[in-house]
């Protein structure tokens, strides 16, 4: 870890002073839960000269929105969101994704805003030395020919195939959540889809944020059918492991036909992967295993694999089918 200075933002004008401190200094970064950031500082992947500690800012808590949605403060800890009765009731897939992510200790530390900003787990990015376009634009991508079992198959480019690691971002993508931010200029709102950038030619750009822009909240709009949603996560280990494949899904079936459906995939995309092709294929059609399967195939047709992760599209297809079967069979949560 490089030498760093520390500034704690707190008090009445804490948010403004934090914004100013980071905006005015390219060498300053915000520090929230630290679960990714401290790790990457120690690895020499990140190298700010100063950290602005925002943990004392009044950005924690869950508010109910008039439409039945929720506004989750950026500094609300993952564990507090997971155990919130209103989240469990209205958006069980959010609660479930949180509980299945990381460990109890990490969930106590990590903030929801930080979760949106978390970095990829690609070993070549994290070792601070291998060629990595995300860390050092133009350096090349060691993962393309390297050990890539956990890497992405959707949204990849010839410059980066790192998987987006978040669990909770997967149901949030399915729910059309919004990211609220602040800069010195005022407040901004991003649609979830716009907030996570595909690597393309610029894998180092992961979000549309400007330096010094601070996430203040995540808004989750109401979605009645999400009360019977699920998050299904497949991994080698039974716990404490990132997803090889995960599915967040909610479905509404009327008279055997799909009235509405929301699906997002984790573990397979370079960003939390909203499965719009699958959704489009399903809506209005029969709620049968066969149509689930066709929808999954439609979504995964664009998958590009390496020899080591060639199993992922098939695993994703099966997981998606299983998720929808489970929801339509008895509506129970996985």
């Amino acid at each position: 870890m490089r030498p760093i200075s520390y500034l704690r933002a707190e008090g009445a004008d804490g948010i403004d002073s934090a914004l100013r401190a980071v905006t005015d200094d390219p060498g300053s970064d915000f520090l929230a839960g630290g679960t990714t950031e401290v790790d990457l500082l120690r690895q020499h992947v990140l190298g700010p000269r100063r950290l602005v500690d925002i943990n004392r800012l009044p950005l924690a808590g869950i508010e109910e929105l008039p439409d039945g949605g929720l506004r989750i403060g950026a500094l609300t800890r993952m564990s507090d969101v997971a155990s919130s009765p209103v989240v469990q009731e209205r958006f069980p897939m959010v609660s479930r994704a949180l509980v299945l992510g990381a460990s109890a200790q990490l969930r106590h530390m990590a903030s929801m805003g930080g979760n949106m900003m978390q970095k990829v787990r690609c070993g070549y990015y994290r070792d601070a030395e291998s060629p990595c376009n995300k860390r050092e634009p133009g350096a090349g991508c060691a993962a393309l020919t390297g050990v890539s079992r956990t890497h992405a198959v959707l949204g990849t480019s010839e410059h980066c195939i790192a998987t987006h690691p978040s669990d909770v971002a997967v149901p949030l993508a399915a729910l059309d959540a919004r990211i609220r931010t602040r800069t010195l200029d005022g407040e901004h709102t991003y649609a979830f889809d716009d907030f996570f950038l595909e690597p393309g030619d610029t894998p180092h750009r992961e979000h549309p944020l400007t330096h010094g822009e601070l996430i203040t909240a995540i808004e989750v709009p109401a979605l009645p059918m999400a009360r019977r949603s699920l998050y299904l996560k497949v991994r080698d280990r039974e716990s404490y492991e990132f997803a090889l494949v995960s599915v967040a899904a909610a479905i509404e079936v009327r008279d055997g036909k799909v009235g509405g459906v929301r699906i997002a995939l984790g573990g397979v995309g370079t960003r939390p992967w909203r499965a719009r092709r699958a959704e489009d294929a399903l809506v209005g059609g029969p709620a049968t295993t066969k149509s689930f399967d066709l929808a999954a195939r439609a979504e995964l047709a664009a998958a590009r694999t390496t020899p080591m992760n060639a199993f992922k599209p098939e695993l994703a297809r099966r997981t998606l089918v299983r998720a929808l079967e489970t929801l339509t069979r008895d509506g129970s949560r996985s």
Binding site: R121, G123, S130, T145, G146, V147, R149, T150, D236, R237, E238, S239, Y240, E241, F242
Partner: peptide, 25 residues
């Protein structure tokens, strides 16, 4: 442990990626 043939490095040299059982396993 996955050896990366080109560089001779163990590609998953961490307890996050070299999987050993957790309590749930």
């Amino acid at each position: 442990t996955h050896m990366e043939p080109g560089t001779g490095r163990w590609a998953n040299a961490s307890l996050g990626e070299y999987l050993v059982p957790v309590n749930a396993d």
